[in-house]
Computed example of a mutant assay.
Amino acid sequence: MSNQKTQPPSAPSAGGLRIGMLGLYGMPMPELHFTGFETAFGEIAPRLVEKGHEVTIYCRRAHFPRHLRRPAWKGVRLVYVPSPGGKNFSGILATLFSAIHALVVGRYQLFFFVNVGMGHHAALCRFFGKKVVMNVDGIDWKRAKWGRLARAYFLSAARSAIRFCNVLITDADVMHKFYLTEFGKETSMIAYGAYVETSTNPSLIEQFGVAPDGYYLIASRLIPENHADLIVEGFLQSGTKRKLVIAGGANYDSPFHRRLNSLATDAVIFTGHVHDQNVIKELHCNCFAYLHGHSVGGTNPSLLKAMGYGNCIAALDTPFNREVLADTGVFFSRDAADVASRLKEFEENPALVSRLRGMGPERIVLEYTWPKIADQYDVLFRQVVAGTA
């Protein structure tokens, strides 16, 4: 089975474009790990360089210690911009500075934005006649984690992106249909990728007091829309003798995290945020099953990662999760008793667990490899610049 070192390269392309990527935290490096978009374009951008493109990623300076502000990484040029404004406003302000720099000195043939919240920034670049593509990353104005003012801003930014961008990219067929139904906007669907990998150092999980096959795993940010509380309740109701490891950062002063802690017993292990990706890999590769409670967004990178690691997966029943998993996992409703039923099903049916573990990697190789995703971006970007998209 393919893995990170042997996954085939992207197909070569003739010529190249000057591409600016805006809205990211920055480029992942060995000493600096990001999640989400940054992980994705840390894979895609270098592959676009291999195809002959000149790619620049704008990075938020505050997230890069001075000694890590490299001028380039894996052939991708890096520009560091100020990112004031704290957690709530740094993205908006940093992307504004990025857009100004890109317009004044960038000379890019294509401006690529991530996150629908940057829709007004994209409109600014279109005002100056630039070719603009945006990956919308879902429907942030519907997310419970944002307040009323933030949701109103996201909706206004989405309308701006829909009106002005040359092309919008969605990451799932369900999201493509949502934009078409709600806004009458056709989008290009390009998902994300993952690697197929296996355990190489299982001793790394010993620090959490667990052994291979002796625990279920949640690996996500601990926010209400990821439903860790629902999963904990179902886990406890199932009567399993296994542990539940929850790998994810959290602000334990919030009401949600107080509730999560109140539900937990000695069988529930909170690791906090795990920075070492080798540890994350081993937690995945050695778990009995992975429990995925994400309820929003399109193609979820965490779910793809779990599939690539060969996890037996039970996921919250949403159209997005069904699209990604297809028949390679089982699903539970927003009912703790249903979660408990799925866990009992795993406990009583080792053949099912074994079969699901083998199906996830096969689906990754078929549908979600990074070379395939990079090829799709390459074709789309060239079409946009040529005026044929």
Rank of each mutant, 00 (worst) to 15 (best):
R143P: 02
R69V: 04
V105D: 10
K87P: 07
I139K: 07
D140H: 08
G147Y: 05
D137L: 12
G138P: 13
V81Q: 06
V105T: 13
S83T: 05
V132S: 00
V79D: 00
K145S: 05
R77Q: 13
G117F: 02
A123I: 02
F113N: 00
R148N: 15
V136S: 08
A72Y: 11
Y108W: 03
G119N: 01
Y80M: 12
G85M: 06
V133C: 04
L103P: 05
R148K: 15
Y80E: 10
G86A: 10
A72M: 03
G119V: 02
I92A: 15
I100K: 03
T95F: 05
I139L: 13
A144N: 09
R148V: 15
G129R: 02
G106P: 04
K142M: 14
G129C: 09
D137V: 12
V114N: 14
Q109H: 07
P84L: 06
R107Q: 14
V116F: 01
R69N: 07
L78E: 06
M118D: 13
W146L: 06
N135S: 14
V133N: 01
L68Q: 08
L93W: 07
Y80G: 09
I139Q: 08
R70D: 03
A102V: 03
F97R: 02
R70I: 06
M134W: 00
A94C: 04
N88F: 10
G85K: 02
V104S: 10
I100G: 07
V133D: 00
L96A: 15
K131T: 00
G106C: 07
